[in-house]
Simulated scan of single mutants.
Amino acid sequence: MLKTFDMNLLLVFNTLMEERSVTRTGERLGRTQSAISNSLKRLREALGDPLFVREASGLMPTPRAEALAPEVEQIVRQTERCLRQDTEIDLATNDAHFVIGAPDRLSLPVFLPFMRYVHAIAPHMRLDLRTSDRDISIRLLASGEIDLALGWFDDLPPSMLRSIAFSEALVCLCRKGHPILRSKGAVDFQSLLAYPHLVVRSGGGRHAAFDAILSRIGHARRVQTALTNFTLVPHLLRDSDQVGVFTKRTADYFAANYDLAVMPIPLEIAPISHEIVWHRRFTNDPAHRWLREQIQKACTAES
């Protein structure tokens, strides 16, 4: 029967039950009186019952109509909920679960304050932070293992969307009292390459973005230590003559919290742009959109 039944007739039936008038039903639904009468006729034929009889006070439902009314009303209300696009979320009760992919360098300067803020105003929302860089993040987004990513990206597949979060320069991070700090202004380029370097790359390996930049101008650095996260960075730099070239936000965080020093590097390098990237199927999801907005605010506040 569903193959031939017009589901719009259920809306007419539900409104007739509420209004008990063909005229008022037509006014509510924006249809003519004759159109409502025709719909009622089709309902009667489909259900094999008069459904409504006319009395002085208006249309009176038959027992069959009275029995159908609660179920039809539920169908109409559920359909309305399905079609309605919710634009607001209840932060006090929302229990959405999000997995965010980002390079480890952003964990402390960006995501530590971000997560504290989200947990304070949305206590039931669950957040997981997964360390991942460019290609890994795109692969995880495509597979659905993460819900959004923050970082530095090149080309994106058509299924992904992006928005600019912030940009920052590369700087030199080292211990206070390091001989390299004798330079005034930017670190001397030859001195920068003369000292052993500490590299952090979440995907492993001993090369990072700065190495690609050096290679383009015919130089290379001596990497003494390679790590996959920043946990040991302040301790290794503070106790040795190693230096690190990191994005400014990360370096500033360690300088402020671990008594290290930051200096500009002597190269004309365009600032590194960080972007928020997500799968386009989540673009209009209210909770996902809210989370993207909060990450954007956190990035702006920290820049």
Rank of each mutant, 00 (worst) to 15 (best):
A67K: 05
L68P: 01
P70V: 03
E71A: 15
V72I: 12
E73G: 02
Q74P: 10
V76Y: 05
V76W: 04
Q78S: 09
T79S: 07
R81A: 11
L83C: 07
Q85F: 15
Q85I: 14
T87S: 04
L91C: 07
L91I: 09
A92M: 05
N94E: 09
D95K: 13
D95N: 14
D95E: 12
A96I: 02
H97I: 05
H97T: 08
H97W: 06
I100R: 00
G101F: 10
G101R: 07
D104V: 12
R105F: 08
L106F: 03
S107V: 13
L108K: 11
L112E: 06
Y117C: 08
Y117L: 08
H119S: 02
H124M: 06
L127P: 00
L127Y: 00
L127A: 01
L129R: 11
R130P: 05
S132D: 02
D135G: 14
D135N: 14
S137W: 04
L140S: 10
A142I: 12
A142P: 03
S143M: 14
L148E: 01
L150Q: 11
G151P: 05
G151L: 10
G151C: 11
G151W: 06
F153I: 03
F153P: 14
D154K: 12
D154I: 09
P158D: 00
S159H: 13
M160P: 11
L161V: 08
R162M: 07
R162Q: 11
R162I: 03
S163Q: 14
S163V: 13
I164T: 15
F166R: 15
E168M: 02
E168R: 09
A169K: 10
L170Y: 12
